[in-house]
């Protein structure tokens, strides 16, 4: 029984790392009808920024001289997430704007290429970029009581993910800007016609999505205690899978999709003998099956092909 509980906990934690990047995919797809393939790399770049702030550049150390450790941690993470938001907006300008309204294949390829560029730039220019790095422990590591299953860090990761999703929920449903994003995702032309400044809203969407990605990258790196320049490729791909399984364009879908993919991976590893090597295969097969037989995902709306 304890085994099953601990595996469930593993799956939930894994789902937390997938969810925010999945939400990123859904958010941008909802707003612009495009898939930005470099999101995983952007998120990892954000984590690298946070690591640079706390190790190489020494910002964290100098901050914690003045402020208590948790607050300086929050400041560092916040700066890193803002950097990610800037980076993703830059991506929007550089590799998405030139292809607006053209064949989707062009933006698909350009965002994949942008992912490679980000990854390789980190590898080339971050000090010892191609080596794995130990991620600085900004989250407390201790256990809660004597129970080995629950550590402070896991609780905080779940809590941050939850808070982020709630904030996003509040923003999308309760603020004017959020409602504008929804309007654009439902019908771009009509939204423009009722006076929504489309460009402004898109940039805001990218900033918010980028911020979430930065947090996502930070949580992932903290959970694994490590960071490597090429982690972003698989992370982004899994995020896209999560978004598709949950329903591309649906924010809550990303949560459900993240849980599903994470549970499949963990349970194939844990309960099928010799299954470890096949856990990724199983996850991708699930995605292929979803696309073939339920392309709208679990929570997505069924779309009828327009003629």
């Amino acid at each position: 029984m304890e085994l099953i509980i601990s595996q469930i906990l593993n799956a939930v934690m894994l789902a937390c790392t997938y969810t925010l990047v999945g939400i990123g995919f859904s958010l941008f797809f909802g707003a612009m009808d495009i898939v930005v393939f470099c999101l995983g790399d952007v998120a990892i770049a954000g984590a690298f920024a946070i690591m640079a702030l706390s190790t190489v550049m020494g910002v964290y150390a100098s901050l914690s001289g003045i402020l208590p450790a948790p607050i300086s941690g929050i400041i560092v993470v916040f700066i890193g997430a803002c950097f990610t938001a800037g980076l993703v907006t830059l991506m929007y300008r550089a590799v998405i704007v030139p292809f607006e309204g053209k064949n989707i294949n062009a933006s698909l390829l350009s965002t994949i290429a942008a992912g490679i560029v980000i990854r390789e730039l980190i590898g080339l220019f971050y000090p010892e970029g191609r080596n794995p790095h130990a991620f600085p422990q900004l989250l407390p590591a201790g256990l809660i009581g004597d129970n080995v299953l629950l550590s402070w860090r896991n609780i905080i990761i779940i809590a941050i993910t939850f808070i982020m999703v709630m904030l996003l929920y509040w923003f999308v449903n309760r603020t004017k800007t959020g409602l504008s994003i929804q309007a654009i995702s439902q019908n771009k032309e009509a939204a423009i016609m009722v006076g929504i400044n489309w460009h402004r809203i898109i940039v805001i969407t990218f900033l918010i999505g980028g911020f979430l990605l930065g947090i996502g990258g930070f949580l992932t790196a903290s959970y694994f205690n490590s960071l490597r320049f090429d982690m972003g490729a698989m992370y982004g791909l899994k995020g896209f899978c999560v978004a598709v399984v949950g329903g591309l364009g649906s924010i809550y879908g990303a949560i459900v999709g993240g849980l599903l993919i994470a549970f499949v991976e963990v349970f194939v590893t844990a309960f099928i003998p010799g299954g470890t090597a096949y856990s990724s295969v199983a996850a991708f097969l699930i995605v292929v099956l979803f696309i073939l037989f339920k392309p709208e995902g679990i929570l997505g709306e069924k779309t009828v092909e327009k003629v």
């Binding site: 550089a94 590799v95 350009s110 290429a113 992912g115 490679i116 560029v117 390789e120």
Partner: peptide
Amino acid sequence: LMYGIVLI
């Protein structure tokens, strides 16, 4: 890196 930049 070259592949990425060339493609873009």
